[in-house]
């Protein structure tokens, strides 16, 4: 029984810690905006998307994946997972806001209120469709439409790059079907 194994000090312990921190910062700066973009598409709120982006990196910091070669894949899997769950959790709130007519009031002050209201309605409907899809299909569509390559999507979803074409075609079919089934109120 060695109690101190977690804390064995070595000559380079602090140097190692600095390296890890520097590496983390590099990854953060490299991926932050893209992680945010993916999350914003899912949650549609700047503050929430920023919070979730930070949460994604916080998880990376606290419990990084065992294998570092698929770091980006891990990041975007966690991000889309968090975003999708937040989207589901936000359902009730969305409905309430719509009923309260908040959108209309908000957009009334903008230069082109009618167009702004229409854009919001489109967004809500697209997001509502994603919310009702399977997590994998929603993640797939969001990643593809955030400009990810098939290889990057495959790494994030843990599937073969060769299957992305089929999965994407089916997800689009499903999206369109569900979108049609949910006409705006």
């Amino acid at each position: 029984m060695a109690l101190a194994t977690d804390n064995v000090p070595t000559q380079s312990a602090s140097a190692q810690a600095r390296d890890v921190e520097a590496e983390f910062e590099t990854v953060f700066v490299q991926h932050y905006t893209r992680v945010y973009g993916v999350l914003f598409r899912l949650v549609g709120d700047r503050d929430e998307a920023e919070d979730l982006a930070l949460e994604t990196f916080w998880r990376l910091w606290q419990r990084p994946p065992a294998r570092s070669e698929n770091l980006a894949g891990w990041l975007y899997r966690v991000a889309t997972h968090l975003g999708y769950n937040a989207l589901r959790a936000a359902k009730r709130r969305l409905r309430y806001e719509e009923e309260a007519g908040r959108d209309a009031i908000d957009s009334a002050s903008l230069p082109d209120p009618a167009r702004e209201a229409e854009r919001r309605a489109e967004r809500t409907r697209a997001r509502d469709t994603l919310r009702r899809m399977s997590p994998r299909d929603a993640q797939l569509l969001i990643l593809r439409h955030s400009g990810f390559t098939y290889k990057e999507i495959a790494a994030a979803l843990g599937v073969s790059p060769n299957s992305i074409g089929t999965l994407l075609a089916r997800a689009e079919e499903e999206f369109e079907r569900m979108y049609r089934d949910d006409p705006p109120d």
């Binding site: 905006t33 945010y36 914003f40 598409r41 998307a49 854009r119 969001i142």
Partner: peptide, 18 residues
């Protein structure tokens, strides 16, 4: 068509992160 729906979700310049 799907792309047109999903592209509405992208952040606009005023919605970009810090």
């Amino acid at each position: 068509r799907v792309n047109a729906h999903l592209s509405t979700l992208a952040p606009t310049p005023t919605e970009s992160p810090r």
